[in-house]
Design a protein around this nucleic acid. Structure first.
Length: 421
RNA sequence: GGAGGCAUGGCAGAGCGGUUGAAUGCACUGGUCUUGAAAACCAGCAAGGGUGCAAGCCCUUCAGAGGUUCGAAUCCUCUUGCCUCCGCCA
């Protein structure tokens, strides 16, 4: 959520900046509502001040045992008027808030300009694996041949888009998750969480999934709960409505979760096998940091996620998203993509974003700064990483001519085998 | 699922329908004292909004939403959360 004061005072600049993300945004309605609300509030405050002072007089008279009947007539009129204005104020401010919740975050000035993914910038590209000089298979064929993935059986019970990992495949999936969690825990100062997978609407509002993107999530109607599309939702809401103390910052949180996404409307495009699924596993990193440091924290976040790919011996690139390709809540974002030689495609396996104070305003997450004043904190998150596409790229990259899969050194302790065959 | 209890400032914890934004303690900040620290003493210390160059002034907020009343932290209703007991259960 953007700061209404900033919108009020710099509407042209803000609109210009928003247009880099979405040209169709208008602030007219918001400015109009804000103006009405301000006028109304000023008037209401005057009446309330009058009411307060007169009520105080009543208190004094009563304590002396004197009659206050004369004042009551005045107060009755005041009271009626105030109730009327208060109702109007409630309506106005809730309309204003609803409108503000629909406005995306401003892109950071350093983001490349552009309207779509075509304008994204490759900042790092690292291909260290040798070209495979045999008949390269894709992950679906490998999965079938080694009997580690079964999409047919999964579809029988859940429909398409729900992978079933089997045998060494299930082991590999579990090993990847544990390896990634341990890596971040051992090398950086993260606190591990295992969070709820279902959350209340308010939580999804904090991180920006609601109100605009309710169609993307699974919703349990009976209990009004949403299945989390990412652990970002639960991890960020740990501090909803909190005021964190400056000495406790930065806070680095990590959590594995299953992630659930409806992916409505994405049929047919890159949906084969593990490429786009409704349920997947992800280790998520979330940071709560002071505003001055959030861009340094973004850099280190990207590095931390990237290191995993180095250790898994995968080919990858880091993409800096252009303004037009940024998500709703992000001010700046880097995507990590791995090369899948069987699919012959780059697969997005991580998204590392700085939200600045966009989420913290929505979730009312604040901190006491070094001056002792409270201010909204900056939040960041990054996948570290999402498994299904890692899994696909992993078995495609490490496949051998004889059909087996090589397990890199880093992962061997987690699997206790050096190959899947 | 059934029965009951509770919800107040960073924390703990008072609070009669009326000069209560809210006693007190802890924590925190500044000062006095001290070579320094501790202790003691003094002072300050909620958030949000409006207005003003500023000092300041005004308004709102006692889980949330409604209601009663001239006036609500205090009374009523609903919602949410937590706790205790019973039932069920991996």
């Amino acid at each position: 959520m953007l700061d209404i004061k900033k919108i009020r005072n710099n509407s042209d600049k803000i609109l210009q900046s928003l247009a880099k993300k979405d040209k169709n945004i208008s602030l007219d309605n918001i400015l109009r509502l804000d103006d009405s609300l301000k006028t109304l509030t000023t008037k209401l405050n005057e009446l309330q001040a009058d009411q307060n002072s007169k009520s105080k007089e009543v208190g004094i008279l009563k304590s002396k045992g004197e009659s206050a009947e004369d004042i009551f007539a005045d107060l009755k009129i005041l009271s009626d008027k105030i109730k009327e204005l208060e109702k109007e104020q409630r309506e106005l401010s809730s309309s204003l808030k609803d409108a503000l919740l629909e406005i995306p975050n401003l892109p950071h000035s350093s983001c490349p300009q552009g309207s779509s993914e075509k304008d994204n910038v490759v900042v790092v590209e690292k291909k260290t694996n040798k070209e495979l000089n045999f008949n390269v298979k894709n992950h679906i064929d490998i999965g079938k041949q080694l009997d580690i993935l079964d999409f047919e059986v999964a579809a029988k019970m859940s429909g398409s888009g729900f992978p079933l990992y089997k045998g060494k495949g299930a082991l590999l999936e579990r090993a990847l998750i544990n390896f990634m969690i341990d890596y971040h825990l051992k090398n950086f100062n993260y606190t591990e969480f295992f969070t709820p997978f279902l959350v209340k609407p308010d939580s999804a509002l904090t991180t920006g999934q609601l109100p605009k993107f309710s169609e993307d999530m699974y919703h349990i109607e009976k209990d009004d709960l949403f299945l989390i599309p990412t652990a970002e939702v639960s991890l960020t809401n740990i501090h909803k409505d909190d005021i964190l103390s400056f000495d406790d910052l930065p806070k680095y949180y990590l959590g594995y979760s299953a992630c659930f996404r409806r992916e409505a409307g994405s049929y047919g495009k890159d949906t084969r096998g593990l490429l786009r699924v409704h349920q997947f596993n992800k280790v998520e990193l979330v940071k709560f940091v002071e505003p001055e440091k959030s861009y340094d924290e973004l850099d280190s976040l990207v590095k931390q996620a990237t290191n995993i790919l180095d250790l898994l011996e995968l080919d990858y690139r880091v993409i800096e998203l252009c303004s037009g390709d940024l998500s709703f809540a992000a001010a700046k974002c880097f995507d990590l993509e791995v090369w899948a030689p069987g699919e012959e495609k780059w697969l997005e396996v991580s998204s590392c974003s700085n939200f600045e104070d966009f989420q913290s305003r929505r979730g009312n997450i604040r901190f006491k700064n070094s001056d002792g004043n409270t201010d909204f904190i900056h939040t960041l998150n990054g996948s570290g990483l999402a498994t299904p596409r890692i899994f696909a790229a992993f078995i495609e990259t490490h496949q051998r001519e004889d059909g087996s899969i090589r397990i890199p050194k880093s992962l061997q302790p987690y699997m206790e085998i050096s190959e899947i065959k």
